[in-house]
Design a binder for these strands. Structure first.
Lengths: 334, 334
DNA sequence: CTGAAAGCGCTTACAG
DNA sequence: CTGAAAGCGCTTACAG
């Protein structure tokens, strides 16, 4: 410190009152010239603020979560926060480990997108009094409902609209490939689809509702098996695009054409689905925005500028008609 | 602290000698029962070890970088490190900002995949004595060569093999869509392609070598324009799959067929390229492995178990023949 | 307006 | 083998 006390430079660099303008300027100059970078870890220790948030997702190579992560990281960066990437691969133990690590790292908040319906860790987060927001999925535990913030898509409506679209195009033999049924989004989508089926008045056999676990590979297998069954469905509604693309492989590999022989729908609207020759009809989900909004809410909580109130945001599910269901060819038949 | 000094618990929990087994066990038990989590930030401060690495990439929603990031995060996690995700969007200023932040956060090391040929920040990293490894791209500054570790694909060979494959299939009118020519990978691929052209003995006009900047959109535009020119190419070699997919859109939208009218190649072998109906012929790049190996080398440096030596790893570029170049139809013609 | 002191939550020598 | 003290690099009251 070429000319002043440590307190003086601390106050200067943090723009705190208690020091003359002239001296402040001088200190800033010297700091700049010498490339002085204050240690954020020491700062964290005394301020109890790390300016780090944790982001918990299943898999960064999954296009859905990658978009989510992009929204999170962009927004965090914009507000001066760094983000620690935590991928759990859907493993609850890994999730627990990461939660522990994030807490002992003193992160200011957590964005969690992997919550399971009966999630055992939400209480932990509440007890630790660490700000967090659930995105994509929420805990389905009634007494927790008012205690956590969340932002999700209207999965029920997504599940409903998909069936409705297929039905209007003339399909009665519809197969549903669900997400991971331990998670709220999959549960809600399935509820929506079942409600639509009921409303419409058609029944589909149990064997035509299969859990695809949001996995491309799993959906491939499920679809392949169904296609080989004796009364195969004429339409597949996969509850995410990943699985829809898996089903697509199975359909095409078995020599069938889309949508001529088989109609196919997904949910999420990932970019790959828009490619020529794929043109997947789907339900749009605002992935980037969900991540971005999640961070904004989280930072509001952390900085408590806004009086705290539990926020619950449910984003619209919008039908995106492309070519895998045959709307272009026939239009709605009913 | 129910029964011992702070030093005692510190030694117990860190498995340091200097305390009796019995007491150690007891302390560990109590720690477990009370759910005590030592503050990693305080630890960082005294140990000068944060167990955090920084990962710098262009864009997490880009499939190539997402795979890379997956390899990095998985491996870091396995070795007890957390990873801070930093996306620069190819912006050097953002890169600089992140480097500063990472340093003041006291990260133990950095994986950087966004380095530019004349990168102004490598010297900074060396001066700061912070371990780092360049993956995917390297600085093309001779006197820095022996000072940084890197692991990259053999981009020259990738560029070479693509041209060779197209030529053997009978193409003379080839267009090349390059990556960002301020980066080593793009430069090397282009060199390789030019060398192949020379070896083979064909010349392609300047207007048929265009910079696509590793952007889907840019490649679309470049390809569209070239297709409309009066002597259009019969084959496109995009120097990554992202761009190949962009070119594919342009080709298909203009009513041409692949590979009947136009042959198409990429580099990277992202998963989307393998989808039915896309089946992009490409050069395989080991993305996940590159990230994973990068972290292993980085951690070796950080922990200095292995005597330090500058490592340079160049991964093989392997041709993956699928359907966009017409090999299935005709086989090699020359 | 400025400087010396205490403290954030740990770990590491250093005496007992 | 154990406990009291110093220190990591900062910030924040608290006297001068």
């Amino acid at each position: 410190m070429a000319n002043a006390s440590v307190a003086a430079v601390s106050m200067s660099l943090n723009n705190r009152p208690g020091i003359g303008d002239e001296k402040r300027q001088k200190i800033k100059e010297i700091a700049k010239k010498t490339g002085y970078q204050p240690s954020l870890v020491a700062k964290s220790l005394v301020n109890k603020r790390s300016y780090i948030i944790g982001l918990i997702i299943n898999d960064i190579a999954d296009h859905f979560f990658a978009e989510l992560a992009k929204g999170v990281e962009d927004t965090a960066k914009k507000h001066g926060y760094s983000t620690i990437l935590c991928t759990t691969d859907g493993n609850l133990k890994t999730q627990e480990d990461y939660l522990d690590i994030l807490c002992s790292r003193g992160v200011d908040g957590i964005i969690i997108s992997t919550v399971v319906a009966e999630d055992p860790h939400i209480e932990f987060l509440i007890d630790e009094k660490i700000p967090f927001v659930c995105i994509n999925r929420i805990p389905l535990i009634p007494y927790l409902e008012k205690k956590a913030e969340y932002i999700i898509m209207d999965n029920y409506s997504a599940g409903y609209k998909g069936i409705e679209h297929l039905w209007k195009l003339g399909h009665d033999k519809i197969a549903i490939i669900t997400g991971s049924l331990n998670a709220s989004n999959a549960i809600e989508s399935l509820k929506g689809s079942k409600a639509a089926l009921k409303k419409i008045g058609i029944k589909i056999p149990k064997r035509c509702i299969k859990e695809g676990k949001y996995s491309h590979q799993e959906a491939y297998l499920v679809c392949e098996r169904l296609l080989k069954s004796k009364n195969p469905p004429t339409a597949f509604f996969a509850h995410d695009d990943n699985m829809a693309l898996g089903a697509r492989e199975a359909i095409l590999h078995s020599g069938l054409e889309i949508p001529k022989d088989i109609a196919l729908m997904g949910i999420d609207n990932i970019k790959t689905g828009a490619l020529a020759g794929i043109e997947l009809t789907t339900i749009s989900q605002k992935k980037y925005e969900m991540g971005a909004m999640g961070v904004k809410i989280l930072i509001n909580r952390i900085e408590e500028k806004v009086p705290h109130m539990v926020e619950k945001i449910v984003l619209d599910a919008e039908l995106v008609v492309r070519k895998t269901c045959g709307y272009q060819d026939s239009g709605y038949l009913r």
